[in-house]
Deep mutational scan, measured.
Amino acid sequence: RSRTAFTAQQLEALEKTFQKTHYPDVVMRERLAMCTNLPEARVQVWFKNRRAKFRK
Rank of each mutant, 00 (worst) to 15 (best):
F6T: 02
R3W: 11
F54A: 13
P24Q: 00
R1I: 14
R31D: 07
D25E: 09
P24E: 00
E40F: 08
F47T: 02
Q9H: 11
A5V: 11
R51Y: 00
L38E: 02
R42C: 15
V26P: 13
T4F: 14
L32K: 07
R50E: 13
V45E: 05
F47P: 00
F54E: 15
Q44N: 08
Q44H: 13
Q19V: 04
V26G: 10
R31I: 04
L32W: 03
A5T: 13
V27W: 05
Y23W: 07
D25N: 07
R31K: 13
F6Y: 12
L32V: 07
F6K: 06
L32P: 01
E12V: 01
T17V: 15
R50M: 12
S2E: 15
E12H: 03
T17G: 11
N49W: 11
T21Y: 02
T21V: 08
K53H: 10
W46D: 06
R51M: 01
Y23S: 02
A8E: 10
R31C: 08
V26D: 08
E30S: 08
L14G: 02
T4W: 09
L38G: 01
M34S: 12
E40N: 01
S2I: 13
F54V: 04
T17M: 14
L14W: 04
W46L: 02
A52I: 15
T17A: 14
R42Q: 15
R31P: 01
E30A: 10
L11R: 08
R31H: 12
N49H: 11
A5M: 13
E40V: 09
K53I: 10
R50W: 05
H22V: 05
N37Q: 12
E15K: 08
R1D: 15
E12Q: 10
T21H: 05
T4K: 13
R42W: 14
R50Q: 14
Q10D: 06
T7A: 09
T21M: 02
A41I: 06
M34I: 12
Q10I: 02
P39A: 07
L14V: 07
E40C: 05
V43N: 05
V26T: 11
M34Q: 13
F18K: 00
E15V: 02
R51W: 01
F6R: 08
K20G: 07
Y23E: 04
V27S: 09
M28Q: 13
R29S: 06
R50V: 05
R3Y: 14
A5R: 11
Q44T: 13
H22A: 09
E30Q: 07
